[in-house]
Write a protein that binds this DNA or RNA. Structure first.
Lengths: 188, 188
DNA sequence: TATAATAACTAATGATATTAGTTTTGTCAA
DNA sequence: TTGACAAAACTAATATCATTAGTTATTATA
């Protein structure tokens, strides 16, 4: 009712994250957002460019936060320990903020420069973790693709309820990561 | 214009697949579908229950086809050879029918009985491939989760353009799969 | 051939995003 | 202190969708 609600971009973004995490990313609509913020839909345009732009910002934030979570997790660790911790941090982020993670994972177009840079930061972080392994640049890049596939695949299937069997999920993840790392260590 | 267009459920489904593969799954709208089939939107309701039901059918079909592709790929193969072939068949399916694959991967609710059964068939197929490894039931289920994570993660990242580096993709996939399989073979 | 089932249609409703133009409020400089 | 301007809310309008209700034409069948 009050003419000034005191909104800003961050508040809108935060509300969008909450809706995404609680109700699912497909429920992040301008209508739902406006209702949550006690504002009419068009008012949101003072703070965001539109729905696609909002989704892009969510993706961007998600990439940044996921990298932060991994950085925090590997402090004081190196080698397989660090990779294992980073893998768990990745999946745990997706568990804690399923909507935000989904916003990142389900963005159709990854061509945006901001997103590319955030994505490059994640890749750069993983390359750092691989330094002790003394791989060639090409080998390291293949491993980064492999590692990302592993953790994203696991997180994604788990979130979509793809694992319906009664079976410890952390144990599945631990085995997946250690199996992959063991394979890296071993020559054919 | 003609009053009977000769539509049936399969035709509608096929058109939906084409839109999904060419324009992306988010472009599969009843409006686009009706336009493609030279029909008004409400007419589609004679053949499908609605958009959510259509998407569910796409997911179902995708699960069936992906299993068929893997079955075909492993004929005459066993052990690591079979798993490698199945992994490539999985990813190649996603490459050939990106929209159909995405429809499967991005379905919010996997609780439907039809989908569960189709999904169980995929799991059952993978368990068969693991028979030569003589794992316990629990071990085998963990491996199935791992393998699905690996191939889905790779396919998903590749489709979303997550691999922007100039680097052979098939080589990345081959390394990922063989590394995982090598890890399975090796004890710690 | 008459009737029933079916597949198309039109019309209407409600949700959504977006744009244009308006009003109110807060801030800042004269 | 006040007046002007920028910003943030608003209303109104449009366009796109999905969906439902009710109607008409076609096909199949009894």
């Amino acid at each position: 009712m009050a003419y000034r609600q005191g909104l800003d971009t961050d508040t809108v973004l935060q509300a969008a994250i909450e809706i995404a995490d609680v109700q699912g990313v497909e429920q992040v609509t301008l209508a739902a957002l406006a209702a949550k913020l006690n504002v009419k839909t068009p008012s949101l345009y003072n703070h965001i460019k539109g729905l696609p732009a909002l989704r892009k910002q969510l993706s961007h934030l998600s990439l940044i936060r996921i990298k932060e979570a991994m950085v925090e997790a590997v402090l004081g660790k190196a080698g397989d320990d660090a990779l294992l911790a980073a893998g768990f941090a990745y999946v745990n982020f997706a568990r804690k903020q399923p909507g935000l993670y989904d916003a990142m994972a389900s963005l159709p177009d990854f061509g945006d420069p901001d997103l590319q840079q955030a994505s490059n930061n994640v890749v750069g972080f993983m390359l750092r973790l691989l330094e002790p392994y003394a791989l060639s640049e090409e080998d390291a890049l293949h491993v980064v693709r492999g590692f990302r596939s592993v953790v994203h695949g696991f997180a994604s299937l788990e979130l979509k309820n793809g694992f319906r069997m009664e079976l410890e999920r952390d144990e599945s993840l631990r085995r997946l990561l250690t199996t992959y790392l063991r394979g890296l260590r071993t020559a054919d």
